[in-house]
Amino acid sequence: MNTFIIAEIGINHNGDLKLAKKLIDTGVIAGCNAVKFQKRTIDKVYNKEMLDSPRQSPWGTTQREQKEGLEFKQEDYEVINNYCKEKGIEWFASAWDIDSQIFLRQFNLKYNKVASAMLTNISFIEEVASEGRYTFISTGMSVYDEIDRTIEVFKKKNCPFELMHCNSTYPMANDDANLKMIQKLSERYDCKVGYSGHETGTLVSICAVAAGATSIERHITMDKTLYGSDQKASIEPYELCLLVREIREVERLMGTGDKILSEAELAVKAKLRG
Rank of each mutant, 00 (worst) to 15 (best):
S205I: 13
I235M: 02
G228Q: 10
A211Y: 09
T221V: 11
S234K: 08
E236W: 12
I220C: 01
K232Q: 07
K192I: 15
E199N: 01
T221P: 06
I206T: 14
R248D: 02
V244C: 11
V204M: 13
A210R: 05
A210P: 02
E249I: 05
A213Y: 01
T221N: 07
Y227I: 12
L242Q: 11
D190C: 15
L240K: 03
T225I: 13
S205D: 02
C191F: 14
I235N: 00
A233H: 04
S205P: 00
R245M: 12
H198L: 07
L243S: 01
S229A: 13
S229Q: 09
A208E: 00
K192V: 15
T200R: 14
S229P: 11
V250W: 09
I247P: 04
G194D: 13
I220E: 00
T225F: 14
S205R: 02
Y189N: 04
L240P: 01
L203M: 13
G197P: 09
T225G: 12
D223Q: 06
K224Y: 09
H219E: 00
C191N: 11
R188G: 10
T202K: 03
D223C: 12
E187F: 15
M222N: 11
K184T: 12
R218D: 01
I206D: 02
G194T: 04
A233D: 05
A210D: 09
S215Q: 04
K184P: 11
L242R: 01
T221W: 04
E199K: 00
S234W: 06
I235W: 03
E217W: 10
Y227G: 07
S215E: 12
I235E: 04
G194F: 09
S196Q: 14
R218F: 07
L240E: 06
K232V: 15
H198P: 03
R245D: 08
E249F: 14
G228F: 09
E217V: 10
A208R: 04
Q231M: 08
I220D: 01
V193E: 03
A210V: 14
I206A: 05
I235F: 05
V193P: 07
V209P: 00
